[in-house]
Design a protein around this nucleic acid. Structure first.
Ligand SMILES: NC(=O)c1ccc[n+]([C@@H]2O[C@H](COP(=O)([O-])OP(=O)(O)OC[C@H]3O[C@@H](n4cnc5c(N)ncnc54)[C@H](O)[C@@H]3O)[C@@H](O)[C@H]2O)c1
Ligand SMILES: NC(=O)c1ccc[n+]([C@@H]2O[C@H](COP(=O)([O-])OP(=O)(O)OC[C@H]3O[C@@H](n4cnc5c(N)ncnc54)[C@H](O)[C@@H]3O)[C@@H](O)[C@H]2O)c1
Lengths: 219, 219
DNA sequence: CTTCATTTGTGAAACTGTTCACAGTGTGAA
DNA sequence: TTCACACTGTGAACAGTTTCACAAATGAAG
């Protein structure tokens, strides 16, 4: 296989921060700012100048020593990298409380397009929610192929998640964002990102409590 | 300050995995299983036996070479560590689409208790949603002190998030779980966890695309 | 043109987290 | 009681990430 120097497997943490930089740069640009220094971006991202420079170095972007980085160029660079020029089409499975909130949030929001939603319950299918048509699960393979969907978002109950993941994989999806509180097993090479609210809250609660204890013991 | 050996600052990744183990152990116990080996837990958590053993070593828990770990003891240990014996009381700010989904999800779910919700919109306050009373923002400081709330969950629009965070900090909260797509500035020592859906989707989209490209180029 | 202040780009160090490899150990079998 | 096995506990190697420190570059000012 021929390895282009461009496709050099950027680590996940860096991708996450680039996603954040993109939002910040979009805001700056909207405010009319043209140039930005690493320390400015770092302050906005609650990070360090070194980290910012290292990240931009990772994607091969260069600034000018006295002027900093040109926002429009940097933004184009990051967007090209994250979106790979074509808009990402996404499918949602599970149009419950969380699923509807997600659809509402991403409605008309670049650069992600929810091209289809799926639900098992007949009363949810057939409608259009926030610009996204809801299909019965039986049509999943067909719709995902037709709409060229490469990413699936799972928002079904925990017991259903693995089954839905299997269906998505079978339908040709390459990456999954999973909100159900179970770890999914997928074939090697496919990418799964877990968003686990219970875990997130446990983390906050743990460190918050630790704070309280340290405060108590230091008096 | 006297440093007890117990309060040895466990890394965030480990806390996250412990939270996951807890759920898995609860399920196993409900199924009537009494003992578990590191490789079994690892398979359920989509991890490795080494990782599991290292994590349990970090919290100072020991199993038996031939029998593995006693689930009830391990569970008690993890729960004691995460919850610190008292149930965590949490406040939600922003009862919109996401806020309501979160309330619905955590309703009656151990070990987190949503003790109060706050919203700026008068039509949302005064009611009880999923067992959680919704107050106007003006009562935040009072209610948070009264209910002994140490953790805040932010689900307001991005532009409002920093202001809400400041109010929560002022009210005495020690940790924040933030769903708004901005990085929060808080006084040193307080803990903030960001759940950034845009970032999560960007990551999945990036790696899914990379998959597609590698497949294309390897043919 | 030269100087100066400032910021970038980056090798290397420091740090953090994960995996390996195996000695140590409790258990059940004989 | 002794043996052999399968698993745990853990030091050490390894891998990945962040931070440091400074040479090189740039533009502005005199
Ligand atoms: N609501 C939250 O804030 C929240 C937070 C964290 C995690 N989660 C997780 O997200 C998931 C969904 O949560 P929710 O609150 O939206 O639940 P919900 O019960 O409101 O919605 C679930 C939806 O999935 C559909 N569904 C069930 N099985 C299906 C299947 N096999 N194929 C297709 N559709 C199916 C149901 O018809 C329903 O519409 C759960 O796993 C939950 O644990 C939710
Ligand atoms: N809906 C999602 O799935 C989703 C996903 C990712 C991120 N988010 C983020 O979560 C946040 C909320 O999303 P949403 O979809 O629920 O929005 P929403 O507009 O439905 O709800 C926002 C709620 O916050 C209240 N509010 C606004 N300003 C406030 C203030 N200063 N104090 C108290 N309450 C205030 C509003 O009255 C409203 O009820 C946003 O920042 C959004 O970017 C949402």
């Amino acid at each position: 296989m021929s390895n282009k120097p461009t496709a050099a497997a950027i680590p996940g943490n860096t991708i996450g921060r680039l996603s954040l930089y993109r939002r910040l740069l979009q805001e700056l640009l909207a405010q009319g700012t043209r140039q930005v220094y690493s320390h400015q971006l770092a302050r906005l991202a609650v990070s360090t100048p070194s980290q910012v420079r290292r990240d931009l170095m990772t994607i091969g972007f260069s600034g000018s020593p006295r002027r900093g980085y040109t926002i429009s160029e940097l933004l184009a660079n990051i967007e090209g990298l994250l979106a790979r020029s074509i808009e990402t089409s996404v499918a949602l499975v599970g149009v419950g409380n969380l699923g509807r909130a997600i659809l509402a949030y991403y409605a008309n929001r670049q650069p992600v397009r929810f091209a289809a939603a799926f639900d098992r319950a007949p009363e949810k299918t057939g409608r259009i929610l926030h610009g996204c048509r809801c299909y019965p699960v039986s049509e999943m393979a067909e719709v995902i192929a037709r709409e060229q969907i490469h990413v699936g978002v799972i928002a079904v109950p925990a017991a259903e998640a693995q089954g839905v993941a299997d269906q998505l994989v079978l339908a040709g999806v390459r990456g999954i964002l999973n909100f159900a509180p179970v770890r999914l097993h997928v074939p090697a090479g496919l990418y799964v990102e877990h968003v686990d609210l219970m875990m997130a809250l446990d983390k906050v609660a743990y460190y918050a409590h630790q704070q309280v204890e340290q405060q108590d013991s230091s008096r």
